[in-house]
Design a protein around this nucleic acid. Structure first.
Lengths: 239, 239
DNA sequence: AAGACAGCTTGACACAGATCAAGGTGATGC
DNA sequence: GCATCACCTTGATCTGTGTCAAGCTGTCTT
């Protein structure tokens, strides 16, 4: 049995065979073949098991990450342990840009996760004279910022029921971009993660799920929910 | 008497005499003299009176703005009128980037405001082959995103007293970057604005100010507060 | 198959902050 | 100098969500 419960494996030093299923969505999506080749040479593909840290708040930010597969939880902690999840990262998302030289939040895998990891220096040198890449980085940052602002509205001004409904709608939309529209929304994160994302307690989240089920808006299934009445649901999430 | 209570004045068509007091902090801070000349030719300097809209959520985002002077309130509304202020913009801040082709929030002046206004098309054409500018845009976006994440932690996980203390500390720091350190923190926004920024009601904000004054942490003065015990104060804001 | 455990749900009760209502303060106008 | 108005403060009460505690469910271990 290995020393670590969830060992990290890398494939540095040789060409990875894995095809990147999210090329189009990722930061490298608009590179031509030659440039992509050069870009790939800067990358390490790294695999994490469940609940491993990719990086932690206040660590020196020496790397940036493009998430290829799996889901990560991004969060900040207060000194007394209160946690706010600031987002869930999906394949195609770009992580690790920081305003100073330290990460401003922590990231860890939920299930298994695979990333393209780049050292900051080489990555910045690669992009600094490639306006296409810089514009794409800008698009990513602008989209992230807009999501963050939506979340501020949610955290500051919505009721528990509205928060949960808006979360499910938003999550369903993000999954739809990756996997297409489905009736069943899979929820790989636990109730505590949802609570810490919405600024609620786990009990309130649980009660609200139950309430939505009683009102015949959803059905709770293992690791997810089925949305019964998308229309009424979207209305609840918007208002 | 003019038709509009607060008429907007522009100086399009001739060279503005006003020197930009925040060049170093603004988006254009690293341009050389020749490039800055060209950049200026794309700009309109526009002055707004108190409480005028610079732009509104869902409008077609045809312009971007660099704030030169004054303070703006950035906010989102729910259909029923609940408001969340997502930030206060200060001189040097860059506004109006949107993920789609519409603004994702509204902005209006608090007191008087002066901006450099750029039409989106010419602005994008100017920056698209200038990596320096693009990198600076990225820095701006990254800093904004980090502030937004701090605010999510505040909104989701802090008590009313912690929210108000953290707000005052953060605001004092931002003012210090512009005007240097002062004992008296000026608060040009009203109590309702602070409430909508912190996800509280105006009554709770008012009570909390009073409480902090009773505890001899601050003194409330017209249009601001004086911080009496910065140490104890920072501790309250951090924890 | 039984026990242990993590994750989730449910109930009873408490409380921070919201709501409702009234009154104070200072600026502006007539 | 008095009325008006916007803004702020204070008090009384209510309520949505948190806290505390117990029990449920499914999975893993042995």
């Amino acid at each position: 049995m290995p020393h670590l419960a969830y060992p990290t494996t890398t494939c540095e030093g040789f060409r990875c065979e894995t095809h990147c299923a999210v090329r189009g969505l990722a930061i490298c999506g608009e590179l031509g073949p030659a440039e992509h080749e050069e870009f790939e040479r800067l990358a390490q593909h790294v695999r994490y098991g469940p609940k491993e840290a990719l990086f932690s708040e206040d660590e020196v930010a020496d790397s940036v990450y493009s998430l290829i597969e799996g889901i990560a939880r991004l969060y900040k902690l207060l000194p007394d342990g209160r946690r706010q999840i600031i987002g869930f990262a999906l394949p195609g998302d770009f992580l690790g840009m920081a305003p100073g030289n330290r990460y401003s939040f922590s990231a860890d895998s939920i299930g298994g996760v695979t990333v393209c990891k780049f050292f900051r220096g080489p990555f910045l040198r690669f992009i600094e004279n490639r306006p296409q890449m810089l514009l794409r980085m800008n698009d990513f940052a602008t989209r992230e910022l807009s999501l963050a602002q939506d979340q501020m509205l949610l955290l500051g001004r919505r009721s528990a029921e509205e928060k949960v409904a808006a979360f499910l709608v938003g999550w369903r939309e993000r999954l739809a971009r990756l996997e297409g529209v489905t009736k069943t929304v899979s929820l790989p994160m636990g109730r505590q993660d949802i609570a810490d994302f919405l600024g609620l307690t786990i009990e309130t989240v649980s009660r609200t799920f139950t309430k939505l089920e009683r009102e015949k808006l959803i059905v709770i299934v293992p690791d997810g929910v089925r949305v019964l009445d998308p229309k009424r649901f979207d209305a609840l999430a918007a208002a």
